[in-house]
Computed example of a mutant assay.
Amino acid sequence: MNTTTPSSPREHVLLAAAAREFATSGYERASLNAVIRACGMSKSSFYHRFDSKQALFDRVVDEAAALLAHDLAAPEPVELAGPDFWPRLDAFVARAVPALAEPAWYTALGKLFYLPDVPAGRSPAMRRLLDGVDRWVQAVLKAGRACGAVRDDLPASLQAELAFALLQAMDRWSVAHMDAMKPAQRRRIAGQQLALLRRLLAP
Rank of each mutant, 00 (worst) to 15 (best):
P119V: 08
A184Q: 13
G110E: 12
Q168M: 12
A104L: 08
Q138N: 14
Y47L: 01
M1Y: 02
C147G: 07
K53C: 02
D153Q: 10
D152I: 02
L89S: 05
G40C: 05
M41V: 06
V150A: 11
A149I: 10
L167E: 05
F92W: 13
A16I: 07
L200G: 06
A65W: 13
A125N: 09
Q192D: 13
G26A: 12
L100D: 01
L129C: 09
A190L: 08
A125C: 10
W86G: 04
V61M: 11
K43P: 00
F57A: 10
V78F: 02
A19M: 06
L115F: 07
L72T: 11
L109N: 11
V61F: 03
A156Y: 04
A104E: 14
P77E: 10
F22S: 07
M126I: 09
L89Y: 05
V137E: 06
R49Y: 05
L68V: 10
S45R: 07
W105K: 01
G144P: 14
A143S: 15
R37W: 01
P103H: 03
L15Q: 01
P203A: 07
P83T: 14
M1D: 08
D171W: 10
S123R: 08
M181D: 14
A69M: 10
R29M: 07
G40L: 04
D117W: 05
P98W: 04
S7A: 15
P116A: 01
A169W: 00
V140T: 15
G82E: 08
H12W: 00
R145S: 12
Y106I: 10
P183S: 11
D179M: 13
L201C: 07
K111D: 13
G82C: 10
L141A: 13
L200I: 00
L115R: 12
